[in-house]
């Protein structure tokens, strides 16, 4: 074999081996070497953020003297004041986080950072907060703004045209004012509009059946007014549940589902496109819409004893008086309308 041929073979071997060199180095360096991180302790739940903050703040309450100032939650350059009660004047701003053993109040147009109060929190008209947690109810004035999240033990009432950040949750009633925007809401229940409306007749709606039922497969379906269907429905097209009709099962549609006034569905409503619950319509299970979920006035989802979820792949619109016992998820933003 000539020297030239040997060079060619060596060059060929080098070219073949070259792609393996970065991998060998990567093995030696151990970059991205570990397993993909899976948080085994994580449980998906609507009030996760509030509960995490409370757990972190608990140590501060136990160890820091009143009016003390501590580095906040390990964030660089951020501090928290530990106080008894705290009030921010109209138009004033507070850069530090506030951990209040009792109540917290920010007057109109005030601006605050993170707030946690073991008592009640009041955010005045036009006031803003980055995050807000309260252990004894909260009240937000009109045009108040929460940038990240809000979590409340007890009831929470928001005025009109509030901005509720990424998540707003309450262990009790979450009353969301007209014109407010949100991404995720959780309440027992969530009620759209300025006041609770009595939805009579809850007791007459049957419980969701749990056994596997025969499925009713159809193209498109219109259930007549006051009719009763005792099956699950799987439809390739749209489904319309007539006024006052009753479906004792779940509805799954590759199109849209429209539940007309005062009709009720005892199972889940799942649609690839839109789900619309008209005035007074009731769904005891979940409502999942691939696009928009729309609840008209006094429409209701879930029951007081069983939290359920309304999810809109695009958005969620809640008209005044609409009520959801559980979680509202608007993937691209939701709003409350009159």
């Amino acid at each position: 074999m000539s020297a030239a041929e040997m060079w060619i073979i060596a060059l060929f071997a080098l070219l073949v081996l070259l792609p393996f060199v970065p991998g060998a180095l990567q093995q030696a360096i151990n970059a991205d070497d570990g397993s993909l991180a899976v948080d085994g302790a994580y449980v998906r739940e609507p009030r996760f953020l509030g509960r995490s903050m409370r757990a972190l703040a608990r140590a501060a309450f136990d160890t820091v003297a009143p009016d003390g100032r501590i580095p906040f939650l390990g964030r660089r350059g951020e501090f928290a004041r530990v106080v008894e009660s705290f009030e921010v004047g109209a138009g004033a701003g507070v850069d530090d986080a506030v951990l209040a053993r009792r109540s917290f109040r920010a007057r109109s147009d005030a601006s605050v950072s993170d707030v946690y109060a073991r008592g009640r929190v009041v955010l005045g008209e036009g006031a803003s907060a980055r995050t807000l947690a309260a252990d004894d109810g909260a009240e937000l004035g009109a045009h108040a703004r929460v940038e990240r999240w809000l979590d409340v033990e007890g009831a929470c009432t928001t005025g009109a045209f509030c901005v509720l950040g990424r998540s707003a949750s309450a262990s009790g009633v979450l009353l969301v004012g007209e014109g407010s925007s949100f991404e995720r809401l959780f309440g027992r229940p969530v009620v759209a509009g300025g006041a609770l409306i009595d939805l009579s007749g809850d007791d007459g709606v049957p419980e969701p059946p749990t056994a596997l039922r025969e499925r009713l497969s159809v193209e498109t379906l219109t259930i007549g007014a006051n009719e009763t269907i005792a099956n699950d429905i799987v439809a390739n097209g749209d489904v319309v549940v007539g006024h006052g009709a009753s479906v004792r099962g779940s509805i799954t549609s590759y199109g849209s589902v429209r539940v007309l006034g005062f009709a009720n569905v005892s199972g889940n409503v799942i649609a690839e496109r839109d789900v619309t619950l008209e005035r007074g319509a009731r769904v005891l299970g979940h409502c999942f819409a691939g696009r928009d979920a729309v609840l008209w006035n006094a429409a209701a989802v879930g029951t007081p004893g069983a939290a359920k979820t309304v999810r809109g792949g695009a958005g969620v619109t809640l008209a005044a008086g609409a009520r959801v016992h559980g979680w509202v998820i608007a993937e691209h933003g939701g709003q409350v309308v009159p």
């Binding site: 609507p46 749990t210 939290a307 359920k308 979820t309 559980g326 979680w327 998820i329």
Partner: peptide, 11 residues
């Protein structure tokens, strides 16, 4: 899938 649903009525 519906993994992020909140459900008190689990099977």
């Amino acid at each position: 899938s519906f993994g992020d649903a909140c459900d008190d009525d689990l099977p």
